[in-house]
Design a protein around this nucleic acid. Structure first.
Lengths: 173, 173
DNA sequence: AAATTATGTCAACATAGCTGACATATTCGA
DNA sequence: TCGAATATGTCAGCTATGTTGACATAATTT
């Protein structure tokens, strides 16, 4: 606080919080679950991040390797749709992954304009190495839950996801 | 993450964890839940993002306003611990929020070095506006679940979070 | 009085998004 | 068959949000 000076030096007992709007604000915001989601996801991603740090890749690479591994033969357009990013964003990380031998491209058998993406053996290993700690964390969080409880969790997560758009509008900027 | 610089990441297949001699490869990676978490969180954050877009703030501002609103009187150090970012990262967004009248600082009543953070009325409104759609989404995902089901979901999310560090080590760079 | 702590700030840099514009190959439709 | 549309690539530059390192100031602790 060097130069700016005057920072409310007065120890007043907290800005009057007293005047709650209180109108028909019976809205109960679920702050608890909002925060649980924030912290859960933050820690969930910290696992692979630690591994990626040692390999020179980032979270963006992780996502690409993951989905290509999960759905070999994916087209670039489909990957963009899944990640909901622009092709220019994808281009950088995809190029690095291809150049480093984690992913290969094959011209589409029917539509040769397409570049279908496949993981190499190395790509598969990386995807697995990154997924492993996340899967362990999930298994740990599932500890003590029966199959029904797990189904409830999955239903909740599914319910958090936007319904798939059938629209297929342009996103290729 | 990463100051690693060098494009073309080292092709080594990630620490000791990766090679797996395929011996007891009974590992079942829970790709399903991994992806559910990815999509759920992506869509979960897209709600406030849309609002923030119109106000010139970003996701980082959202987090700060959220936690200050949730815990008025928070110290800067506590906020850094919660967000797990560096003070230099926080500085930018916090300054903007203070300058725009969303957050105020008050010298700590006991330790006057502290800058305790409080939301202004406007800050409270913003926090609420951002939380509202997220809370709605959560309520929607909870649809049809009884109290027990909701408790299971919360237990799962809690189980995903790292145990709190008691350590309190330096992070202030 | 000296050391430590809480916070702020300057400077430089990395990652991963974005828009806009344009190029190439391929496919499709009139 | 030719022109439009499509799938992809790429250049250039911008923004948001993280990082380190170094140093400043005020207040507290030892």
């Amino acid at each position: 606080m060097s130069r700016s000076g005057a920072i409310n030096p007065v120890p007043r007992p907290v800005p009057s919080d007293a005047a709650l709007p209180s109108s028909s604000e019976t809205e109960e915001i679920d702050f608890e679950v909002i925060e649980l989601l924030f912290f859960a996801y933050r820690d969930f991603t910290s696992d692979p991040d630690a591994i990626l740090d040692t390999s020179g890749f980032g979270r963006a690479h992780h996502r690409v390797v993951h989905f290509v591994n999960r759905e070999p033969g994916l087209t670039v357009a489909a990957l963009l749709e899944t990640l909901k990013i622009t092709k220019q964003s994808l281009a950088r990380v995809l190029k690095q992954l291809i150049d480093s031998g984690y992913i290969t491209q094959v011209a589409g058998p029917e539509d040769r304009r397409q570049r279908r993406l496949y993981p190499t053996e190395r790509g598969r290993e990386l995807a697995l190495a990154l997924a492993r700690p996340q899967s362990r964390r999930i298994a740990n969080a599932f500890q003590g839950m029966d199959e029904n409880g797990r189904a409830v969790v999955k239903a909740f997560l599914s319910g958090m996801i936007n319904p798939a758009r059938t629209d297929a509008s342009d996103k290729t900027g």
